[in-house]
Design a protein around this nucleic acid. Structure first.
Lengths: 242, 242
DNA sequence: CGCACACTTGACAACACTCAACAACCGTGG
DNA sequence: CCACGGTTGTTGAGTGTTGTCAAGTGTGCG
């Protein structure tokens, strides 16, 4: 399942994982260098190939992760195979907030992924030592709640066109966090992932992409690449039916 | 907006709010008596009538609350009036986890409600003093995330029948936390609230209630009262289409 | 008693789903 | 280099579940 687990190298020793240098979202942004050294001793770098499972929705929840590169898909399944994708995790995102004994969803790499793995027992000790860490984690959890609520609004009340427009805008704001403000986004997930994330079928997703393209809201240089021609127009499409 | 705000009375002085005596869900269950006395100094009892707004989705997020009696509805709205109810809060539930400057959803009392109100600035000071409190809040947040994910699965992939069955089972497990295991539940919310919670219309909710009744899964002694005849059968209906 | 409101039921329409065929893409191997 | 098969994505035709609009039935309250 896990292709490689290596101890942290000297090169990455200053920070316990690359995540912390990327963005403020990482949980470790809360800590000082000295404290990070201590975190360093309980973290392991993990690499996965595309398609590999990080954990399954009934596995014992022993680990938490910080994504450092690649994209992870979170999903839940019903007995008959219907699936709901609950989120996509990008570099600097934290994975494994659950408090229960077992994971409640499945996490799978949809691109090659690298991440920092923490034993939850270690993390618990760290909380006690560095309350700042738990404070940071609460922030992460609250952000997750807010976007979960947005997603409920999307799934419960929005049309296919609004759903896809909202989705593209979310990806845009994410991909712009680090870098340029160009309206071009990469879709690492396939149509089935998008459909299961938006509560639609692949056919409807495909048709809706076509419509957005014909309406001049987006361009599609390739299947996995979207150019947003006017973010305001798309924002409009994300909240108005038809 | 708020009908009455009273300082804590001598009778309620031992615990800073009644919630803590009700159930383990309350955030204050994490604290010792001595620490509770300190919380006591920053809490205010608030009473609301049915229909009153606790806060609106763009209000500055200055307060957090512990519900002590009654039911609160959380919702988000689109510009054109479409609404998504994101949850119903019962006694012992915590309200106001958001980290941002403003609330991201509207909270409204759907029955007479009493609750303990905390100034978030006070709460922040309490966190620093009692890390246990923040730990407890993280637990609360994680539970909220888990049920939000369940709700996404419901909204994205379940049929009307499955949605209503799931909803009734959730209410059942909630109402049984405190007391008897009788399969009878009270619906403090109206059909529109249920519809907006389940991503349906009132008509579909009504029709689906009728179907569940005709199929012998539930009885309806009155509009707001549901008797679950066999929880296992209903659990079946909650995960199998048609 | 009658009005108002919430809920239910019916007829019809529509948006998204299902099933099916087709096209594009990609890696493989001749 | 191109032919081939498999996979993924797109498009089409028809169906269905749920939404819309409208009428009807309680139920509570003044």
């Amino acid at each position: 399942m896990v292709t490689s687990i290596e101890p942290v190298t000297a090169a990455s020793a200053r920070f316990q994982c690359e995540t912390c240098e990327l963005r403020s979202h990482s949980i470790c942004s809360a800590l000082q260098d000295e404290e990070l050294r201590e975190m360093n001793q309980v973290v392991r770098q993990v690499s996965l190939d595309a398609g590999q499972i990080v954990f399954f929705e009934t596995d014992p929840a022993d680990f938490s992760f910080n994504i450092t590169s690649g994209v992870v898909r979170l999903s839940k399944m019903l007995a008959d195979g219907r699936r709901q994708v609950t989120g996509f995790l990008y570099p600097s995102d934290f994975l494994g907030l659950a408090v229960g004994k077992d994971y409640t969803q499945t996490a799978e790499a949809i691109t090659p992924v690298r991440m920092c793995r923490f034993d939850r027992k270690d993390l618990t000790r760290m909380y006690e030592k560095f309350p700042k860490l738990e404070h940071r984690l609460l922030e992460v959890a609250c952000n997750e709640i807010v976007s979960a609520q947005d997603q409920m609004l999307l799934l419960g009340r929005k049309t296919a066109r609004e759903r896809l427009s909202s989705f593209l805008l979310n990806l845009l704001s994410r991909s712009n966090l680090g870098e340029r403000l160009i309206g071009e986004i990469d879709l690492p997930m396939d149509r089935a992932d998008i459909a299961d994330y938006l509560g639609l079928t692949v056919e409807t997703v495909s048709r809706t992409f076509t419509k957005l393209r014909k309406d001049g809201l987006i361009e599609m240089p390739s299947k996995n690449r979207i150019v947003i021609r006017d973010a305001d127009d798309l924002a409009d499409a994300a909240e108005n039916p038809d």
